[in-house]
Simulated assay, not measured.
Amino acid sequence: MNEINQLYQKHVEHELTLSQTKENALLHKDKVEIKILAFLSDLGNVADQSQCFSFWDKYAKVDSNELKEAYINGLQMLLSVGFELHVDALKNQIELENNLSLPQQFLKVYESVLKIKTTFNFEDYQNSIEDYFSLGAKLGFSFEDILAQYQHTFR
Rank of each mutant, 00 (worst) to 15 (best):
L16D: 08
L43W: 08
A70V: 00
P103G: 11
L85V: 06
L18N: 14
L102I: 13
N121L: 08
I4V: 14
D48K: 14
F83P: 02
A148D: 13
Q9S: 07
T118P: 00
G140N: 06
H86F: 06
N24S: 10
D30K: 12
N127L: 13
R155D: 10
V62Q: 11
K68L: 15
R155M: 05
G140Q: 08
A137H: 15
T17P: 00
C52P: 01
N127C: 06
S54H: 12
K61C: 04
I34K: 10
G136H: 03
K35L: 10
V32N: 05
N127T: 12
D30C: 00
E111D: 11
N92D: 15
D145W: 00
S142F: 01
Y59N: 15
E144Q: 14
V81W: 09
K117M: 11
G140I: 12
I94V: 11
I116S: 03
R155S: 11
E69P: 01
N121C: 05
N92S: 14
K22Q: 13
S112A: 10
R155K: 12
E15A: 15
F133W: 07
F120R: 07
L102V: 10
Q151E: 14
F53C: 07
L75M: 12
L100K: 15
V109Y: 06
L7H: 05
C52T: 14
L43A: 11
N121Q: 14
Y110D: 11
H28G: 03
E23M: 13
G82H: 09
K35W: 10
L7P: 06
S80P: 00
S112M: 09
N65I: 05
L37T: 08
I94M: 08
F143T: 12
F55D: 02
N24F: 08
K115V: 06
G74H: 07
G82N: 07
D63Q: 11
V62E: 11
V109C: 11
A47I: 04
E66P: 01
N65V: 09
L107V: 07
N2F: 03
Q6R: 13
Q105F: 00
A38Y: 04
N2P: 08
S41G: 08
A38I: 03
E111S: 12
E97C: 04
V12C: 02
I72R: 04
K58G: 12
L107R: 06
F143G: 04
F120A: 10
D145P: 03
F83Q: 09
K91F: 04
P103L: 11
N127W: 04
K68D: 00
N65E: 15
V87W: 01
I116D: 03
Q20R: 13
T119G: 02
